[in-house]
Simulated scan of single mutants.
Amino acid sequence: MTYISKAPLALSLSTLALASCANAEAGDSAAAASAEVELNIEPMGEFDRPWAIEFIPGSDTLAITEKAGTLKLMKTGTGEVTTVSGVPEVDYGGQGGFGDVAFLPSEANREDGRTIYLSWAEAGENDTRGAAVGRGTLVCNEDTDACAINDLKVIWRQGPKVTGKGHYSHRITFSPDEKYMFIASGDRQKLEPAQDRTNTLGSIVRLFPDGTIPTDNPMADEIEPNDEIWSYGHRNILGMDWDAQGRLWDMEHGPAGGDELNLVEAGANYGWPTRSYGKHYNGDPIPDHSADDGFNKPAIHWTPVIAPGDMIFYTGDMFGAWKGDALIAGLSSQAIVRVSIDGEKATETGRYAFDGRLRSIDEAPDGSIWVAEDGPEGRILKVSAQ
C-alpha cells in the first residue's frame, strides 16, 4: 500500500461563476451569472490517467480507475492507497482502456464484500475492440489491507466490435430503485450505426443488474441486440445521472460544437449523426435540429464546446444553492459547469475555473465535490466551501 501526502490547503482558489454565452439555441439569451462562490480546492494525490472516480457507498473510500488498467482505492481520511488485484485485461490506447466503476448503494452496510461493476475496452479479432462491462465481488482483508475482485464475469459487450480506439462511452448507472442498470454505448466514431438499431453502437442500453435483458424494453419484441436498447442516436456519452425526480439525463460530446445535455426517454432517437448543433471536424455541415425532424432535442447545447468528461446531480448541503443542479466535469473548458433544471429545460448557471482538464466528478458523503484531472499525473482534488 502507499500513502498520499496531503499538503493542507496546498491549492486554494477563489473562482467566479462565469456567465455562459454558450447555449446556441436560437433566441436564447446568455445564462445568468451566479453569485461569486469561493471554493477551497485541496489536492489529494496524483494518479496515472484517472478515468473514473466513485465513492464506495457507506464509506469515505474512493475507487479510482487508471486508464492503463489499474484500480486503486483511497481512504480519503488518511490518504492510504491500495491497488486492487483481479481486474480485467484492458485494450489500452487512444480513448480506450479502463473505464467506469460503480457500486450498489443498497450495499452500503455490507461487510462481507460488495458487488462491483467495471467497464473497459476489450480487444477482439482483426484489430477490433469494443466496450465490456463486468460484475464481481470486491473483498478487502482487514489484516493485510489487500483488496481483490473475485469472480469477475463479463455481463455485457458492446456490439459489434469495430476498428478504431474512440468513443467507447461505457459509463454505468443504476436506476434509483436499483432494478435496472443503464450502460452508455458510444458510436465508436462510426457515425451511421447510431441510427441502425441492429447494433448497440450510439445507444443507451438497459439491463437488469445481472446483465439479463428486461422484457419491457422499448424494442423487446425485436431480435437481439435491439432488445437491449433504451435510447439511440447518441454520439459519445461521458456522463449519466438521475435527477431528484428519478429521471435519467446524459451528457455527450458533440463533434466540432454541439455538446449536449439530454433528458433520456425510453425508445427515443436523439438524432446523431443525422442532426447535430455541431459540424464535422473537416468542416462539413450537419443539419441543426428542427421542430419537425422527429428527433429528441437536447435540453441545452454548447458551442464552443465544454468537452464534458463526466456529470452528477448534486444532492448535498455543503453547496446548498447547487442542490438539484447538474455538475459537469469539463475537459477543454477546464471547469465545473453548473446547470440548473426547470422541467425539461436546462440553463447554465455557473462555470468554476480550474487549471487543468477535469475527467471525472463525484460527491462525497459530507457533500464536498471530488474531481479527477485528466492526464498522466492527474490529481484528485477535493472541492469544499470556504
Rank of each mutant, 00 (worst) to 15 (best):
D243S: 07
S276D: 15
A268T: 04
K297P: 01
G257M: 11
M240G: 02
G278P: 05
P273C: 05
D292P: 00
P285N: 12
G239T: 04
D216W: 09
E260N: 10
P273T: 10
G283I: 11
M240R: 02
G233P: 04
R247A: 11
E260P: 09
Y277T: 03
D221M: 09
G258V: 13
D259G: 08
Y270F: 15
N217V: 02
N226T: 15
H289M: 02
P218V: 04
V264D: 01
S231V: 07
N226C: 13
L248M: 13
G283A: 10
Y281L: 14
W249L: 03
N226L: 08
L261P: 02
T215P: 01
W230Q: 04
D293E: 10
S290R: 12
D216S: 09
A266G: 11
I300A: 00
D250Y: 03
T274Q: 14
E260K: 08
G233M: 06
W242Y: 13
A244V: 09
D216N: 15
T215F: 12
S290V: 14
G294K: 02
P285S: 14
I237K: 00
I229L: 07
D221T: 14
K279N: 13
I229Q: 03
H289T: 04
A220E: 07
G254C: 11
G258S: 13
P255L: 10
Y277H: 14
W230C: 05
D288A: 13
A291P: 06
Y281W: 14
E252P: 00
W249V: 01
Y281G: 05
M240W: 06
Y270H: 10
